[in-house]
C-alpha cells in the first residue's frame, strides 16, 4: 500500500512537472529519455530482477515494437495506436520463439542464447527490404486525434503512463502467486521445479509481460523520433544499457531501475553536452587553452561509456544491491 501511494505521488509530481517548467523542449526531451529508460529497465527487471532470467537481448522487443509501428504507419497508414498494439503482438511472437529456445538453457547459455536471438532479429531487419534495410524508416507525418505530435507532451505522458503501468505490474507481481513463483525460480530452479512450479510457464509469462511493455516503449520512441534504423532500436548496446541501468540502480527492486535511469540518463546527457567542461572554463577555473581545458572540452564527451564501465565494475564488486542498496540496508 505504501508503495502504491509512493508511485502515485511520484507520478503526480512527474505529471505536473511540464506545467511548472513551462515550454522547454530540451528539458522535456531529456525527461522523456529518463522516463523511457526507467520504464525499459523496469520492464526488463520483471524478467531479469524477479525471475532471475538475465535477458541480454531486450533490444529485440524494443525494435519489434518500433519497426512494426513504423511499417504499419508508413506503408498501410494505420492508426498509431493500432500499430502499437500490433507491435506488442509481434514482440510477443518473438518472445515466444525466444522463450522456447532460451528457457531450456541455464546460466551462461541463457544469456548467450538471448544475444544470439536478438542479433538474428537485428541482422534480419538490416537485410530485408520491407524493414527499410540499412536505410531505416523515416516518418514524415503522423497524426492522432488532432494531438500535436510535434510537441513533446504526448510522448512525455505516454512514457510516464507506461512507466506507471510497469511499476504497477511489478508491484502486483511482487505480492501475487506468480511473483512468489518467479522469485522461487530465481533462487533455485531445481527446488522450484520440485515444488511443482511449472518453470517454463512462469518464465514465459514474465518474458511476455516484459516484452510487451518493452515493445510499447519501442513504438512510442519510433513515433516520437520519427526515424528508426537497426543501430537506433536493435543494437546490442541498447540491451546492455537497459541491464546496466537496472544493475546500477538496484536489480530486483521496485525503484532500483527508476533510480538507475534518473541518475544515468542525465549523467550521459551532461557528459554528451559537455556542461561540466564548459562550466569550468566559463567560471575561469580552467583555462580554455590549457591542456586540461582542451581535454575537458574535447575529450570528456568520449568518457560517457567509460564512466558507465567504471560504475558497473564498482557496483558489481561493492554494491551488489545497486545504488538503492545504499539507502536501504534492509530490503
Amino acid at each position: 500500500m505504501k508503495q502504491i501511494i509512493l508511485i502515485a505521488i511520484i507520478a503526480g509530481i512527474a505529471a505536473v512537472l511540464p506545467l511548472v517548467t513551462g515550454e522547454s523542449p530540451y528539458f522535456t526531451g531529456v525527461m522523456i529519455s529518463v522516463l523511457m529508460m526507467a520504464a525499459l529497465s523496469s520492464a526488463w527487471n520483471i524478467l531479469g530482477g524477479y525471475a532471475g532470467q538475465y535477458s541480454f537481448g531486450h533490444a529485440a522487443y524494443f525494435g519489434a515494437g518500433a519497426y512494426t509501428t513504423m511499417i504499419l504507419i508508413t506503408q498501410f497508414n494505420l492508426n498509431p495506436l493500432l500499430s502499437m498494439a500490433a507491435g506488442i503482438i509481434i514482440a510477443c511472437l518473438i518472445a515466444l520463439i525466444t522463450g522456447s529456445i532460451v528457457f531450456r538453457l541455464r546460466g551462461h547459455y541463457f544469456g548467450l542464447a538471448s544475444i544470439a536471438v536478438a542479433e538474428i532479429v537485428r541482422l534480419s531487419a538490416l537485410n530485408f527490404e520491407f524493414t527499410g534495410g540499412a536505410q531505416g524508416i523515416l516518418l514524415s507525418e503522423v497524426s492522432l486525434w488532432g494531438l500535436d505530435l510535434n510537441s513533446k507532451n504526448p510522448f512525455y505522458y505516454g512514457m510516464l503512463l507506461v512507466l506507471v503501468v510497469t511499476l504497477g505490474i511489478t508491484l502486483y507481481l511482487r505480492t501475487s502467486k506468480t511473483g512468489f513463483y518467479l522469485q522461487a525460480i530465481r533462487e533455485d530452479q531445481d527446488a522450484a521445479a520440485s515444488l511443482g512450479i511449472n518453470l517454463s510457464f512462469y518464465k514465459n509469462k514474465a518474458l511476455l509481460i516484459s516484452a510487451s511493455l518493452t515493445s510499447l516503449l519501442g513504438s512510442l520512441y519510433a513515433v516520437y523520433i520519427r526515424f528508426i534504423d537497426t543501430s537506433a532500436v536493435l543494437d546490442l548496446r541498447l540491451s546492455i544499457e537497459i541491464i546496466l541501468t537496472a544493475i546500477i540502480g538496484g536489480v530486483g527492486t521496485l525503484w532500483g531501475p527508476v533510480l538507475g535511469a534518473v541518475l544515468l540518463v542525465p549523467l550521459a546527457e551532461v557528459l554528451r553536452s559537455n556542461v561540466i567542461g564548459d562550466a569550468l572554463v566559463k567560471q575561469g577555473l580552467v583555462s580554455e587553452t590549457s591542456g586540461l581545458g582542451i581535454f575537458l572540452k574535447e575529450n570528456l564527451a568520449h568518457a560517457h561509456v567509460l564512466v558507465y564501465g567504471i560504475i558497473t565494475v564498482v557496483c558489481i564488486l561493492y554494491l551488489p544491491k545497486g545504488i538503492l542498496g545504499l539507502f536501504r540496508r534492509v530490503k
Partner: peptide, 26 residues
C-alpha cells in the same frame, strides 16, 4: 566474483571491457 551468479560475472567483464575499449579510445 568467482563464486558469484553468472550474470554478475558477465556484467563485471562487460564493465571491464567497456573500460578497456573506452580508455583505448581516449
Amino acid at each position: 566474483i568467482i563464486n558469484h551468479l553468472h550474470q554478475n560475472q558477465i556484467l563485471l567483464t562487460i564493465g571491464l571491457g567497456l573500460i578497456m575499449s573506452n580508455t583505448a579510445l581516449l
